[in-house]
Amino acid sequence: MAERQVTFKDAVLEALAEEMRADPSVVLIGEDIGAAGGVFLQTKGLFEEFGASRVIDTPISESAIVGMAIGAAMTGLRPVVEIMFGDFITLGMDQLVNQAAKVRYMSAGGFTVPLVLRTAIGVGGNLGPQHSQSLHAWVAHVPGLKVVMPSNAADAKGLMKAAIRDGDPVVFFESRSSYNTKGPVSDGEHVVPIGKAAVTREGRNVSIVAVGAMVGVALQVAERLAGEDISVEVVDVRSLVPLDEGTILKSVKKTSRALVLDAGYAQFGVTGEIAALIAEQAFDWLDAPVMRLAAPNVPIPFSRTLEPLVIPSRDQAAAKVRELMGTR
């Protein structure tokens, strides 16, 4: 099938438009998503095509937006809620944690919540401590929510389509730094199943298990270290919940060394969770302790000199891989 080069942002937009055309119960709810087209132009054109009753501009009331979307999802709509910055999901956390995550379980499947919450996360552009966080671990902690985090345009489109069709609440994290990155997207129907990781690059010596925008860092490190005769395999986690443990463990059992890479915080975070999985279930295959690289445990600072320090870098990742190989 023919492929096109599409930005991450436009790939998500294609998924939204296609699903809205196919299913009249799909609606978008969020701030500035209507005629304005979204602050990142991530909903551009949808208002013109589908109108105000399906592209619903809301007041700045994140808590009620999420809560109302849950009630709408329980009664026949398939809402895609947009929370402009991932930092603001904290305002909707009660709704996500105490309502959305528990409805199916508490009603024994009587009610479902086919809801997607999309939100832009990550550091960049000096937006400061309240517009730069990557809090995906918060929601991944709560049973009953599904959590996906695509790293490229094709997966962004395919996972958004899967998320909209899913019967459960899915939180869809988009790295702002990926928005304008182009990648190949096939023409026609393209759905990526939730709960499947991908081996993005095969290798023999070290597995880098990476999440979201950090997959790009991992691939660059793999390319760089190939010149040092270190063969790096890159696993793109794609879905945090459900986590594809099999693909991660298979890779680590092959390479015997693992670095887990995430732009979220190190403390009580995604890297620790995946490292524990590897330690518990692949210990006998390991030739070195599992290593982690994540954001340092500080608020994301504003200044041009400080901000870059909280983004896991290629140099840091390469150094960790060399340490795993004993060639530091």
């Binding site: 809560g67 109302m68 009630g71 709408a72 009660d94 309502q99």
Partner: peptide, 18 residues
């Protein structure tokens, strides 16, 4: 959750209207 049903009912009403 005290008040927890209010957004759910309001969201259901959004479904009815839509």
């Amino acid at each position: 959750i005290v008040g927890g049903g209010v957004p759910l009912a309001t969201g259901a009403a959004l479904t009815a209207k839509t």
